[in-house]
Simulated scan of single mutants.
Amino acid sequence: MAADSSFGVALVGLWHEVAQAGGGVGFTDTTDRADVARLVAPIVDDLRRGRALAVAVDQGRRLVGAAVLHPGPGARAHTGRLDLLVVEPALTGCGLGRAMLTALLDDARARGLDRVGVEFGQDDRVQRFFERFGFQVWGRRPGWQRLGPGVDRDETIMGLVL
């Protein structure tokens, strides 16, 4: 899929759908599409300008999965940060996330990156997913994500040396 406005609209829809289903994707299940769109616009711009790596999967011309990695700037140019990995809720567990992350890590290696980091709300299932790729826990941020009044969740920081 091209990094254009159609892709942006499809990504907003997918990301919002995953958030509404309770996926730990940086939004609560009550987030509206406009909040998601504000984060998608710079991602699409970064993809257009070659400042990000991405993998997208469509099924019947409908976006069902996407992953985005930003290479680090300056002295961190050998690193990358996985900023997004979303799979349509109905397809969770079918290997789509694994395939996208594998492709993205292969692309990162080919571009000379040798470290990749990811941050997410504390979730044992998500942590185990990344551990299967060799990611290790590098730290935690207590109470970093606020899911609602009085509902804070730690954020897990993981990294992988490629």
Rank of each mutant, 00 (worst) to 15 (best):
E131F: 00
V87L: 07
L82E: 07
L39P: 00
A52W: 00
G148N: 03
D114E: 02
V87I: 15
D35Q: 15
P42A: 06
V86R: 02
W138S: 12
V126S: 08
H78N: 10
I43Y: 04
G117A: 11
T79F: 00
W144E: 15
L113Q: 13
V137A: 09
R140P: 00
G50Y: 03
W144I: 00
L105T: 05
V57L: 13
F129V: 13
L96H: 11
R49V: 02
P149K: 11
V86A: 15
P89V: 03
A41N: 02
V151C: 01
G72C: 06
F129D: 10
R115E: 10
Q145R: 12
L84G: 07
R48Q: 15
D123N: 15
D123I: 05
A110V: 04
G112V: 05
V126L: 11
L85Y: 01
A90R: 15
A37Q: 12
R48V: 06
G117N: 04
R48G: 14
A66G: 07
E131K: 02
D35Y: 00
G65C: 13
A52C: 09
D83C: 09
V68Q: 07
R146D: 06
G134P: 09
P42R: 06
L53E: 03
D123P: 08
D114K: 02
V126E: 00
F135G: 07
G139N: 06
R128Y: 02
R62C: 02
P42T: 05
G97D: 02
D124P: 13
G93R: 08
W144M: 09
V44Y: 03
R48N: 04
D35K: 10
D83T: 11
V137Q: 08
R141S: 09
T102E: 10
R51M: 04
D83H: 10
R61P: 01
D123E: 13
R109Q: 11
L113K: 04
G93Y: 05
L85V: 15
P149V: 15
R38S: 13
D58N: 05
V68F: 09
A37N: 01
V64L: 05
L85T: 06
P149C: 02
A67Q: 07
R132D: 12
L105M: 08
R98A: 13
A37E: 14
L101G: 11
I43P: 00
L69K: 07
F133R: 11
M100E: 12
A110E: 12
A52P: 04
L39R: 12
P149G: 07
R76T: 09
F130V: 05
R132H: 14
V36W: 10
T79K: 08
R51K: 14
A41H: 07
A108D: 01
G150P: 10
Q145C: 01
P71G: 03
Q127T: 12
R146S: 08
E131Q: 13
F130W: 12
L104C: 05
G143L: 03
V57M: 11
V64W: 02
G97A: 14
G97L: 04
G95T: 04
V87K: 08
R115Q: 11
A77Y: 00
L47N: 07
R132Y: 00
